[in-house]
Amino acid sequence: MRKFLSILFAIIAWFAIIAQYILMLNASTTGFADTSIRFFSFFTILTNILVAIYFTNQAFVKNYAHKAFLNKTGNLTSTTVYILVVGLVYQVILRKTWTFTGLNKIVNELLHSLIPILVLLFWYLYEEKSIIKWKSILGWLLYPLVYLIFILIRGYFTNYYPYPFVNVLNLGLSQVIINSLMIMILFITISSVLVGLGKKIDKD
């Protein structure tokens, strides 16, 4: 069942990513190169790529030995944290900001709604929750922190920010820092909930 779910979830994730890329290229007015850079500037896309890579690895690996980097205990939990933040931020902050129709709507729901649920389900079924350490949470913050620094530096030179809550031009740097701190708190909160819940589930 684990391999079947891995294959299914990998297909769904890669379909959503590739379809979103094609849709974005088709709607582009800035050219292939700039559109491609903007595509990979979205935390949603980068995180869904991470999810797709994880499930692709799970689908083809012959065993789940922890010596393989992607199979180390805790990697699934960190990936789950990232994709849950993607889903929650979209549902709470961005859903009313952007309106989609047709295939755009389907792909958007896959990236922001269905895939986070699928990853959480996989985490519940297969992560070795009891041995995940609390101190790992700090390490998990590196990815979103590097991402934030990247989009702020790129935004400074290009005046393009992928999300409205980090748009320095509209909000000012102080407000963007406040917004970023709140999202970092969300990362820490979800991480803590998953680690704590995981230990309780495995204990019961």
Rank of each mutant, 00 (worst) to 15 (best):
I37Y: 08
N108R: 06
W134E: 12
I18C: 04
L50M: 13
D202T: 07
L8P: 08
T99G: 12
I201L: 13
Q58L: 09
I45A: 02
I11M: 15
F100Q: 15
F40H: 09
L125K: 14
S180R: 01
F4D: 12
V89T: 15
L181A: 10
F157S: 09
L171V: 06
K199Y: 01
V166Y: 00
N108F: 05
K105Y: 15
Y163S: 02
T73P: 13
P116H: 04
I178N: 06
I188W: 02
F55W: 07
Y21S: 06
S41N: 10
T29F: 12
I149M: 01
G87T: 02
Y82D: 04
A16S: 10
Y163M: 00
N159E: 10
G74D: 05
I115E: 02
P144L: 01
G102H: 08
F157T: 12
Y126T: 07
K135L: 10
Q91K: 15
P144R: 03
A59R: 07
I7W: 12
V61F: 12
S36G: 11
G31W: 03
F69T: 15
V86A: 02
I115F: 02
G198Y: 00
T79C: 10
V85T: 10
V176N: 01
L141A: 02
Q91Y: 11
S41W: 01
L120M: 05
L46Y: 06
I117P: 13
F32P: 09
K3W: 08
S28A: 11
G31C: 04
L118W: 05
A16Q: 03
I149R: 05
M1K: 13
L173C: 04
Q20R: 13
N159M: 04
L194K: 08
I83F: 04
L197C: 09
T158G: 01
L46T: 11
I188K: 03
S180I: 02
I93T: 12
D204W: 15
I53M: 07
F157C: 00
F157P: 00
D34R: 14
N170W: 01
S113C: 13
Y147H: 06
R95I: 13
D34Q: 13
I201T: 10
T101Y: 15
Y160D: 03
T73R: 12
T77S: 06
W134R: 14
F157W: 09
V176M: 00
P162W: 03
E127S: 01
K203W: 11
I201E: 09
I7T: 12
T35G: 01
I185H: 07
T79F: 00
F60M: 01
K199M: 03
N179C: 04
G155F: 01
A52S: 06
T101Q: 15
V146F: 10
I7N: 08
N167T: 08
L94P: 00
I201Q: 03
I151D: 00
L152Q: 07
F165T: 07
T80R: 00
I49H: 03
Y156V: 09
K72Y: 09
Y126W: 11
